[in-house]
Each structure stands twice: as C-alpha cells, then as structure tokens.
Design a protein around this nucleic acid. Structure first.
Lengths: 150, 150
DNA sequence: CAGATTAGTTCGTGGTGCGGACTATCGTCA
DNA sequence: TGACGATAGTCCGCACCACGAACTAATCTG
C-alpha cells in the first residue's frame, strides 16, 4: 500500500472547502449549490442538459435548482428560438453580481487558509493542481467547471 | 489583489474529491454524510453533542443522521450510565467494516485522481495541504476530524 | 431544594438529488 | 410527407439533509 497521507489530507481539505462554500453562501442567503450554479454561469450561459453534465447532476435535479435560483431573481430561462424544446439559463444583473462577489469571497477565504507560502512553491503547486483538475477523466465525474476564474 | 490561481485550483480539486466521496458512498448504499459519520467514529465513540461539534452540525441534525445510520445497522446508541441524559454512539461490527472499506476506497480513488506526479511536487503539496488542514481555526469551522487514517 | 445548565429529541420548513413517467419538439429516413 | 425514434425539459414521489425553536429529562450549583 502506498503512503496515503496526501489523499487523507485532500479529503479533509475538501471538507474544509465545503464549509467555506457553505459560509459564504449563507452570507448571500443562498445555498452552496445555487452559488455554484451562478459561478458556473459566469463562464457563459448554457442549457439545462449541458449544465447537468457540468455539475454532475441528473436533468431532473436541475429543474428545481434553476426554479429556486429563478425565484430569487438570480437567473432567467430564455426560450431558444431555434430549438423550441431547449432553453438557455442566463444570469440576471443581480445574479452576476452575486456570482462575482461570492467567487471573490470564497477565493479570498481559501487564500487565507493557504496562508504564507513561498512564491516559487505557489506557482509550482498551481501548475500541479491544475494538472490534476484538468486531467482527462471518465465522464461519470467529468466536469467541475464551476468556480472558474471570472 | 493577490494572484488567486492556487485557491481556485484547490477549490476545484476539492469538488473533485467530494465527488469521489459521493461515488464511494453510493457503492455502500449510504450517503456521504453517513460515511463521514462512520469514518469519524473510527477515532473512537462519542456523544451526540461532541459529534455535532466535530462535524459542524446542529445537535438537532445529528439526531436524524444517527437515526438513519442506526436503522441501517451501522451504529448503536449506548445509554451512558454515569450521565443518564447522554448516550454514546458506537460502531457496530458491520459499521466498522464499512467505515474501513469506504476509507480505503476513498483514499485509493483520490490517489488515482492525483495520478503520476513528481515526488518533489507531491511532498510540496502534502506539506501545504497538511498545513491548511491542521492550522488552528476559529471554532465556527473548527473540526474536520473525519477521515483520519484508520 | 430551586434554578440554571446540559444532553438529546421532536417538529415544521425549505432545500437536494434520484429515477421514472410524461410532453413537446426535432431529425431522419422511407 | 409522414411516422418514429431521439432529445430537451418538466413533473412527481421518495429519502435525505440541515436548520431553529420548543421541549423533556437529568445534572450541577448555590
């Protein structure tokens, strides 16, 4: 068996990040999932199906998620004229603002978590972690495009 | 404003790890929360209040979580004889086995996620992540003791 | 012993995610 | 052109999750 200290540490990191996400979301009176939705839309609007792929959810789960975000005025469904089955999900002005602000806050808090670190190491690590994140993966857990830099 | 690329990369990595957690949980027909509960109990049994602190949940949330784990035979409430208000939560044999197996699987899959990586980078990453995870933190998001190595 | 504190539960609310069934539309191909 | 299969999205019922407020029972403190 390999040394798994890194794996264990990463699992804990994931829990920590979830909490940061949860805390920041609460400040905006939204759920982490809704914030994630908004942040993802900063990368451009898409349809329900593509979003469900990107978030790793079933289509049927998206309906409710978008419903609730729409009810809060963060997002609108725009019926596609070409394909009248489809609809694009777009950020409202308010939604865009919230997405930006939340993204900033999350990033800042994670930065604070990282703390002081040698600039060389930082750059190196960024490359390494990006590599892991972008590595090709089986579709089942393909995409984690949310929280891309705006 | 600082460069926040590393923070962003870590957030994405955390999302990825969360998915691994979710996938493994599904294999055991449990939810991620239940698996986390079991893994935490590998470190020794505790009462409801302490567990809620460790998991960052309200006491009232624990009741249901433990109920469901108990219904599945993973865990038992043991009434404390000294303090008859309190009860200890203990793993059943089956619960312990599931906790161990799940922990192993999660660790292995996260290792796989990391993949081939330069040993120097690996060490650097481990140092940084360990540092983040073990850093003292305000109580509000204090503990993430689950998934300690068995 | 009275009153404050603590451990845990109960209840109601809103959110999450799933799978299966359904509607409407689109594309294809005969 | 017209039937038919694929596709986009919704609806429903289910189990779960987390919260806060109100509650019970036991313990501690003065």
């Amino acid at each position: 068996m390999e040394d798994t200290g890194l794996a264990t540490a990463l699992v804990r990191l994931a829990h920590l990040v979830s909490r940061v996400y949860a805390e920041v979301s609460k400040e905006f009176e939204l759920t982490p999932q809704q914030i994630q939705l908004l942040c993802m839309l900063l990368g451009g609007s898409t349809g329900m199906t593509e979003m469900s792929r990107a978030l790793g959810l079933e289509k049927s789960s998206m309906t409710g998620l978008v419903d609730r975000a729409e009810r809060r005025g963060m997002v609108v469904r725009v019926r596609d004229q070409r394909d009248r089955r489809a609809c694009g999900i777009e950020l409202t002005d308010q939604g865009r603002k919230v997405a930006h602000d939340a993204h900033r806050k999350v990033t800042a808090q994670v930065e604070a978590l990282i703390g002081e670190i040698d600039p060389d190491d930082r750059e190196r690590l960024e490359t390494v972690v990006m590599g892991i994140v972008h590595a090709p993966r089986p579709a089942t857990r393909a995409a984690t495009r949310a929280h891309s830099p705006a």
